[in-house]
Amino acid sequence: MHILEFTFKILTICGCGRPDSWTTPYKRFVYHVYTVFILLLIHTFMLSQLLDIILTVDNSDDFTDNFYMLLAMIVSCCKMFALLINRSNIETLIDILTKKPFQPSEPDEVAIRQKYERLIQSNTLHYVILVESTCLCVTMTSLLTEFKKGKLTFRAWLPFDYSSSSRFLFVYAHQLISFTVGSVHHVACDSLICGLLVHICCQIEILECRLRKSVYNPEILRECAFQHNRIFKFAQMVNDKFKFTIFIQFVVSTLVMCFNLYQFTKSTALRAKYIQLILYMCSMLSQIFFYCWYGNEVKLRSRQLVTNIFEMEWFELDNDAKKTLLTIMRRGTVPIEFTSATVISMNLDSFVGLLKTSYSAYNILKQTQE
């Protein structure tokens, strides 16, 4: 059974996951070259925006025009590095999901995993549509406005004169392609992390299914206890590998929300970009919402497991089986909780807190300008 198949196709596209069939040295080399090309593409774009802020920007309006996109590209670069550095760890995590005790062994367990895989694929597909629709909107808005005026889509500092038509077209295309590729890195990393969170929920449901069967077959209780322990360890591995990436996303999303709200209050010259800004804000909010929603789901399901065990017909089991159930229940009293850099919990309260913090920061920025 394939795990996160659609997500890994996106990872392949963005240069962070070589196809399994590419095993020959020649194909490996080609993909390494492709990865380096993608790396240079998004980093040169991010660097041009950063240098523009450092060397060129001298007023608040120009700063806000560029800063929110710079933040998104910085996170995209961080996510690419996180995916490349953790490539072997990602393979290990997927390998764990395909082996015992996580591997489904009965038709009903297979059906549970297929249900969650369909959910992951649906979420990823809708997320791709939202993010790439934003990119398309940015591209079309730019072509209809900035391109006709001979202006770039995004402010940038470049070490050469791009006023000639050929150089302008090259820089213009470089910005739009880099922006789109950067958005794919967001989709790849976010869908991977959220997909792993969904699989933790899947394993908890499979564990509940096996526990219900243990009433008629107490011999599998030891395996259930082992699986429960492995679920906690698996969740800890996922949290350890991606906690700093999630933390950076939280901070950047707060800042982007603040600066996007400020963009809405600017002059009527920005009316043509309202749809673009709305889609961009929805994309940034979706990133954090998925993290918080499924982080919250993992916590609730791991806590609900204790209640579900108590509602079983456990009184018919022998003392050894009851002790095993009590061990699982005792461990489950402390639910699985994901945090970003051990600072922010990934739950719906954190998502609401992000919205409030963004609005407060926006008010402070607006008062400063006034």
Rank of each mutant, 00 (worst) to 15 (best):
L136W: 06
C77L: 00
F160E: 09
M281W: 09
D190E: 14
L125H: 04
S48V: 04
F250I: 11
I220Q: 07
F242W: 09
F6L: 14
D349F: 06
W157R: 02
C135A: 13
K241Y: 11
F351P: 04
N260P: 00
A173M: 13
M140R: 03
V306P: 04
S48W: 03
E109I: 09
S183E: 03
K266D: 13
G295L: 05
F154H: 12
T98E: 15
P104M: 07
D318I: 04
I3R: 14
V30N: 01
V181Y: 11
V171M: 10
L152T: 12
Y280E: 03
V334C: 02
N229Y: 09
L97R: 01
I90M: 09
C78R: 00
D320T: 04
L317V: 05
D318A: 06
F338P: 01
E132R: 04
K100S: 10
S21Q: 12
Q227T: 01
R210K: 15
F315P: 01
Y172E: 01
Y34M: 07
M237N: 11
I53N: 14
L255D: 01
N59T: 10
C258M: 14
T368A: 12
F226H: 13
T141S: 12
W314H: 07
S48N: 10
I42T: 06
M73A: 03
F154Q: 00
L196K: 11
L192H: 12
G150L: 09
N89E: 12
I248E: 10
Q49R: 11
L158P: 01
Q114E: 11
N347P: 08
S76W: 06
L317W: 09
L169N: 04
P218N: 12
M346N: 14
A269W: 10
K148A: 04
C282G: 05
